[in-house]
Every structure is written in structure tokens, then in C-alpha cells.
């Protein structure tokens, strides 16, 4: 089950570039929250700050606090520990090419030393079912490489891989932008179902996608969060002029 996220005064830098400025944002548990905004506005950096992935870049720096559930991830915890609780799906599917589909999905548990064979079988099946991929791959789970699947299947497999460790939060950084419309709609259906069990934060360029899957939407511009509100309000009656310009396609 998911937990909520409370972001307070978050600032992030890449070198001298101040990519996130004073972000304050409460992300509700067990809902989908969408982040929209033009390219380079900082929304990807923002989700990468939520599992401390941002700091894997040596020139990156972060200040501020992020509470996930009851844990301040920059004060109370190690990055490893956080990433065991916060799953992430990247823009481009990144399966482990040398592993079978089964091993890909089980990799998060296996690297943590989880060795209960029967439970592992069940978890892999459940994760693949949750990712709406089970029926397509169940016959060659251990025979085929994860990289032999199509792009959309790979991305759903990556979602299954993230779900297998039963995360409390699932971060998705433009998970459908490299996919065709059919695969995209499958991923969206998936998010729609998963958000009852997980807290989902999804970065997207596609405003219809945000409108379809998310209850809450945040609009980022030039490293600042301009507006955060219910998706309905953002798309029908935004309070900020810049939000309105963006969603009506006047820039970005």
C-alpha cells in the first residue's frame, strides 16, 4: 500500500544550474499525481529527487526535505533503503538484456537475497499480471531475454519489475513517451488500476494523459512549481495565467 509524500523547500542543482527552486508539494497516498510542463522545466529532476536518483550524478546537489510516509529521505535514510521502497520506471524501457523475463522481474528481490522459490514464482506472476503482461509472456518466461520483447512489452515488464518489490511509491518518468498509442493506452489503463494500491507520480508531456490518469496535477515552469491542484481544476479553470497559456498550447 502506498504512502504520501511531503516535499518541503526542495532545491536542486546540476553544477551551477539551479534546476529546481523552492518546491513545496504534498503528494497524496494511493492516488496518481501528474507533473506537466515544457521540456527542461525540472519535472524529471523533481521525480529523481524523490528516490535520491538525482544525486547519482556527481555534479548534482539537493537541499530541502522530502518525507515519504514517516521517513525524511534526506535525513533518516540511506539511498539504497529508499529505493527499496520507491520504485521507478524510466522514459525508455531499460530491461536487463542478459536476463530472462522472469529474472528481470525477480531481479529486485533476488539482489536483496530473497530466495523463497515458490513465493518468487507467485510474485513474478502477480507482478506481470498487474502489469498486464502475463498472458503475453507466460509461455517463455525463462526462455526469452527481457530485451527480446517489443518496446511496449519491455516497458510493462519494467513496471512489473518495479512492482515486484511491492513499493510504496511508484515514480514514472514519461513512461509512455517512447511507445506507440496502443502500448500507451495499456500503460495508462495500468496506472489507472495501480493507483488504488500505490502512490504514483507520473511525469508526462502528454496533457491528455495527465487528464486521464491523475487526480492531482502540478505544472512546472523554469524550475518552479507554478500551480498544483486537482487535475480537473488545472485543466478547466487554472488560477495562474501561465498554466492556462501552457494547457491551451500558447507556448511550450
Amino acid at each position: 500500500m502506498g504512502v504520501g509524500i511531503e516535499v518541503t523547500n526542495l532545491n536542486a542543482w546540476y553544477g551551477a544550474n539551479h534546476t529546481l527552486q523552492d518546491i513545496n508539494l504534498p503528494i497524496p497516498a494511493n492516488h496518481a499525481t501528474a507533473l506537466i510542463g515544457p521540456s527542461g522545466c525540472g519535472k524529471s529532476t523533481f521525480v529523481r529527487c524523490l528516490n535520491r536518483m538525482h544525486e547519482t550524478n556527481p555534479i548534482a546537489r539537493v537541499t530541502g526535505s522530502v518525507r515519504i510516509g514517516d521517513m525524511d529521505i534526506y535525513a533518516d535514510a540511506s539511498p539504497v533503503e529508499i529505493r527499496r521502497r520507491v520504485g521507478m520506471v524510466f522514459q525508455r524501457p531499460n530491461p536487463f538484456p542478459t536476463m530472462s523475463i522472469y529474472d528481470n522481474v525477480a531481479s529486485g528481490l533476488k539482489l536483496n537475497g530473497y530466495s523463497n522459490r515458490r513465493a518468487l514464482d507467485e510474485i513474478v506472476e502477480r507482478s506481470l499480471r498487474n502489469a498486464a503482461l502475463w498472458d503475453e509472456v507466460k509461455d517463455d518466461l525463462k526462455k526469452k531475454s527481457g530485451a527480446s520483447l517489443s518496446g511496449g512489452q519491455q516497458q510493462r515488464m519494467c513496471i512489473a519489475r518495479a512492482l515486484a518489490v511491492d513499493p510504496e511509491v511508484l515514480l514514472m518518468d514519461e513512461p509512455a513517451s517512447a511507445l506507440d498509442p496502443v502500448s500507451t493506452s495499456k500503460i495508462e489503463d495500468l496506472i489507472f488500476q495501480l493507483k488504488t494500491q500505490y502512490t504514483i507520480v507520473i511525469v508526462t508531456h502528454n496533457m491528455q494523459q495527465a487528464a486521464r490518469v491523475a487526480e492531482k496535477t502540478g505544472f512546472f515552469l523554469n524550475g518552479r512549481m507554478v500551480e498544483f491542484d486537482s487535475t480537473h481544476k488545472i485543466f478547466t479553470n487554472p488560477s495562474d495565467k501561465r498554466t492556462e497559456d501552457y494547457i491551451t498550447g500558447r507556448f511550450g
Binding site: 504520501g4 511531503e6 491542484d229
Partner: peptide, 20 residues
Amino acid sequence: GITAPLTVPVEPVSEVRRFL
């Protein structure tokens, strides 16, 4: 305008989560 509470009542944590 968020109505959803930050922490939602949850069912007991799963075995996997407990392990991790």
C-alpha cells in the same frame, strides 16, 4: 484542495515488504 489523507489506512504489510 486535497481530500486524500497523506497516510491511508493500510492492510498489514506484505511479506515482501516486511522482508525488504
